[in-house]
Simulated scan of single mutants.
Amino acid sequence: MDAFRFSLTDEEKAFLKDLVRLRIAGRLAGREPALPEPPTAKLREPHGAFVTLTLRGRLRGCIGHIVGDRPLFATIGDMAEAAAFGDPRFAPLTREEFQDIAIEISVLSPLTPCPDPALVEVGRHGLLLRRGMRSGLLLPQVPVEWGWDRETFLGQTCRKAGLEPGCWRHPDTAISWFEAEVF
Rank of each mutant, 00 (worst) to 15 (best):
A102G: 02
G132T: 05
Q141I: 12
M133F: 12
T152D: 08
P143Y: 14
G147F: 14
V120M: 01
Q141T: 11
H125F: 11
V144H: 05
Q141P: 08
V107Y: 07
V120C: 07
P117S: 03
W146K: 11
G147N: 09
W146Q: 13
P110Y: 14
P113R: 12
I105K: 08
T112V: 15
R131S: 02
S106P: 05
L129P: 01
S135E: 13
C114I: 10
R124G: 06
V142C: 08
T152H: 11
P140D: 13
V107E: 14
L129A: 04
S135W: 01
L139H: 13
C114K: 06
I105Q: 04
P143M: 14
P113I: 07
A102W: 00
R131G: 01
G132S: 03
E151Q: 03
S106E: 07
C114R: 06
L139P: 12
T152P: 05
G147P: 10
H125T: 04
L128C: 09
Q141G: 11
R150L: 07
G136M: 10
L129F: 02
V120D: 02
S109W: 15
E104C: 10
T152G: 02
L129N: 12
H125R: 06
P143C: 13
V107L: 12
S109R: 08
E121D: 08
G136T: 07
R131F: 04
L138K: 09
R134C: 09
L111W: 14
A102S: 04
P140M: 13
